[in-house]
Design a protein around this nucleic acid. Sequence first.
DNA 1: ATATAAATTTAGACAAGCCTAAAAATATTT
DNA 2: AAATATTTTTAGGCTTGTCTAAATTTATAT
Lengths: 217, 217
Amino acid sequence: MTASEENYIKIIYHLNLTSNEGVSTNAIAQKMQTKASSVTDMLKKLSEKKWVIYQKYQGVSLTNEGLYEAKMIVRKHRLWEVFLVDKLKFSWDEVHEIAEELEHIKSDVLIDKLDEFLGFPEKDPHGDYIPDRDGNISKVKRQLLSELDKNQAGICVGVKDSSSDFLKYLDKQNIALGSSIIVLEKEMFDQSMTIDIAGNVFQISNKIASNLFIKMN
Amino acid sequence: MTASEENYIKIIYHLNLTSNEGVSTNAIAQKMQTKASSVTDMLKKLSEKKWVIYQKYQGVSLTNEGLYEAKMIVRKHRLWEVFLVDKLKFSWDEVHEIAEELEHIKSDVLIDKLDEFLGFPEKDPHGDYIPDRDGNISKVKRQLLSELDKNQAGICVGVKDSSSDFLKYLDKQNIALGSSIIVLEKEMFDQSMTIDIAGNVFQISNKIASNLFIKMN
DNA sequence: ATATAAATTTAGACAAGCCTAAAAATATTT
DNA sequence: AAATATTTTTAGGCTTGTCTAAATTTATAT
């Protein structure tokens, strides 16, 4: 599988997780920063190679083989992120782009040895679970902070958006994975919230709250 | 620079080290496992981009910029090899192919952090010196075992060929970097040798002796 | 010095992965 | 239900890096 094919498979995997129905050409094009016509070309190729089910105008979904490949790419990406943060002392907002390259290195034994070297980590630096070598992946009931109501509380366990800008904002506000969060107020007009993080009280927009995963107490 | 361009630059660097004159199209084609016509195409491109000096039919050599780029690729390759052997516990015959991929990952800060994490190693697992971030590289007077005469002695400090087959042979014969070697006999007919390695006496062909670097006492 | 051999380059083609512009299918409005 | 808007696909083209076959240059041998 080429790096480009792997990127398409990975994006279809992520899009399918959130929607659970056929993934549209345009949605892929947007994530891949490319044109819809390029996506159509690639979907035909991936379909011939049996990694996706594709029917003209009807969107696309992964076959079992495609799903397994996608999970292996995600596994590699997340393990490399752990390496970069835990061993090389990168901060969590710097590792995504480098892991995007490293995830395409081809060697199963490399990944298994890396996994062992890192102590078989469960999660990556952004709180996402790492699939094991068979593609099994833990699922924990968590929800977006934006879904909580006033006076509800929980622990921050992950981020939905892992862009550098968002992560730097969290660092600045001292919001880290593991932090306790209580919703003190929720504004009806713009869905912004007043929250308490370990005694620290401040306001956050709905956009921020929509990108933080919370595990409720 | 694309991965392919980097591979050409790297091969020209290695070929130039051993010959010190213009590198021929065919020599590159052989190392790249490709056709001479493909090499010609690439040399034109590299020349336009000012990484090599190329004149039709006259071979090619690196510019200063090309030389620096080559050293940085070699630096990356060798640092990743140290990582694979020292940290992930690969054996020295398994790391070359994986490092061939890892060397193309684009991030200067990644390499500097990796260098630090590894404790700023001087040499890679095959005894080759690792260029520093400015492209400086230690040079030590060493020679091929095949150049030694009867009764000369030294210490094994590196391998010229780092193919898996050769390295496995060395492991089998208990020849490692650091081993003391004495030439007991040298056959005029086929240049084969009888050597003593740490009390262990056996014969090796000229082909073996031509791929082992020795530092004389 | 000429003929032959070897090395190198040119010409033209191809696959992968992308693009633009136009056509076709599907979705949404009125 | 027809008209309009949106999405998706098709058609044709471009670049990178490769190939084969033919032409050209350089090297070697008689």
